[in-house]
Design a protein around this nucleic acid. Structure first.
Lengths: 334, 334
DNA sequence: TTGAAAGCGCTAACAA
DNA sequence: TTGTTAGCGCTTTCAA
């Protein structure tokens, strides 16, 4: 932030009032078109850029939103972050990004520190307890993504129907033993997905087993792969593509063929086709969901909190190369 | 940004002057310790948080830095982004993140829009022409990462020595035909790495071929894999881990064994061990490099531009599972 | 050690 | 359609 032309300098140089310059930028409709042109041209010539801080101070509107994610390195988040930036900048807002590092306390500190400085906060895949989150949403302008807390403004990527489609697909291929490999326990998506797999499996008469990979990492999933298949599951649904990929890595090492020996379906469609074989998965329209959340954040800018809302987006099953006919358990047992 | 207690309110509530409250936060050394305590306690009680915008306006210091990356979804950047945030927040700064989407014009617009609002800009892997970059660095406070423009403040991850080690390693394994698979043409790292491979190959008497994957994506690299190996290369160095992984994906589809048929070494160590076999690569201390850049950005906050500097960090060759003894070319030719 | 007061650059009544 | 003016919340001289 080095010194630069101010609105007053530009105004006196043009022989107009500061407010005229201001209006040329914020309410050009109030000015004669040629005045606007004159001001804008002069602004460009001297390199005048409005000072956001002064503007924010004057209007009481921060001109920015905050975005908190648990782990920027997880491939699910970058597209979301990019979508958030695009939508925010279309609304004339910049975005402060922060990473909670999967740490609930850090997440709360971030919320408290950032909230007063921004128009509102997009909190994605929160790791905070629901009661805390509800409290915070009662004090600050929070829009949650992938966290279903009653009384808050939340946008949810709902995998239920896609999971039903996935299990139907596996059943048709002859799979009878299904495993779910879950991720972070604090993740709402994880609990939702596990629940959906369990319920659907029961409805379809499929044997269901659940595993957990609390750190949610590729490595941890890989380490679990032998166990999963050793217990006889031939169809596995993973919490997300990272875990699915980790399982595939483990299977590859064990010479367990995908999809010959075991079928696997991920979630989030975050790895595109960067696995071999290409991963079947559940895809969401993250951009639309993010857009909805940003809408909520920007809609009634002067309210202290966001209205209660529950907006859901369904996922779609995307079949690629990791599902195939079931093989008999014993046929590849080691 | 909802209404919240101001310094004036807090002051009158405490029966002190606003400046006293201000000093309790910014220059506690000027106050009697018990005054400081009293103010801080009251601030905490009423939930007072300093208004960054007002502070920025008053001091002329933005309290934030900007960070521009070409593609947040590329796994090289998230760790860097996280490092930037950690170092910035340690210096009391927040960070505005922006993604140029590999687009030079968009990158320039971002620089011009953000620069006036922040203490300085961290521009990573710029896609702008050097002349533009030099101009911008002469006008704004820019710290470049992975872009070597004379006269600017730049921090470089230098792969040269690690590439030398890599080729020596391949040569010892009996490889004689080396290919480099490059990424974005605008990338300095790409040009540097290609040059290092070429020079070293010549010195070691190895046959060298260069390929390019301008989009720099997994998909594009995968599509190139057959060509690379068809021309007889048995050792390949990829611009980055994403391309290396893409090549591996292509090889897997073609039933070309890694490292049995072809050895491959990536760069950036961005995929950890998320490939099968685990990828040999060149690793950099991104956190230190980022720290150096942020140091530069925060050192002389009132100067209009950063001093000229060229700070380099060498990479390290990390051998994992994708390199092995060379096989005769004809042995696996299709 | 603390207070009073001016001013950072901008916006938004209100007036003209 | 444009100008005047009073702050927004904070920091920072200067004075006490």
């Amino acid at each position: 932030m080095i010194s630069r032309p101010t609105i007053t300098q530009l105004a006196s140089q043009l022989g107009v009032a500061p407010s005229t310059v201001s209006r040329a930028f914020t309410r050009p409709d109030l000015l004669r078109p040629d005045t606007v042109d004159r001001v804008l041209a002069a602004a460009k010539a001297v390199g005048y850029v409005p000072n956001n801080n002064a503007r924010a101070l004057s209007t009481g509107r921060a001109g920015a939103i905050g975005l908190i994610v648990p782990d920027i390195a997880n491939p699910f988040f970058p597209p979301l972050i990019r979508a958030a930036q695009n939508h925010a900048s279309a609304a004339g807002l910049s975005v402060f990004l922060a990473d909670s590092d999967e740490d609930a306390e850090r997440e709360e500190r971030l919320i408290i520190a950032m909230a007063p400085q921004v128009e509102g906060l997009l909190v994605v895949s929160s790791r905070l307890p629901s009661t805390r989150l509800r409290e915070l949403a009662g004090r600050y302008r929070l829009a949650l993504i992938n966290r279903d807390v009653a009384g808050t403004f939340r946008v949810l990527l709902d995998a239920t129907s896609a999971i039903r489609a996935a299990l139907n697909h596996l059943k048709e291929l002859g799979h009878t033993r299904i495993a779910y490999v879950g991720g972070p326990e604090r993740s709402w998506s994880n609990r939702q997905r596990r629940g959906a797999v369990e319920v659907t499996a029961r409805q379809l008469g499929l044997h269901f087993t659940s595993y957990g990979v609390p750190p949610g990492t590729y490595e941890a999933a890989k380490a679990l792969s032998r166990t999963v298949v050793g217990k006889g599951a031939t169809g596995v649904i993973a919490f997300d593509d990272v875990l699915a990929h980790g399982l595939m890595g483990g299977f590859a090492e064990e010479r367990i063929d995908v999809p010959g020996d075991v079928s696997i379906i991920g979630c989030d469609d975050a790895l595109a086709t960067q696995t071999f074989p290409a991963l079947s998965t559940i895809s969401f329209n993250v951009a639309d969901a993010t857009s909805a959340a940003i809408h909520g954040l920007t809609e009634h800018p002067s309210d202290a909190t966001l209205p209660t809302a529950r907006i859901t987006f369904d996922g779609t099953l995307v079949l690629r190369g990791t599902t195939g006919p079931a093989r008999e358990y014993s046929a590849f047992r080691k």
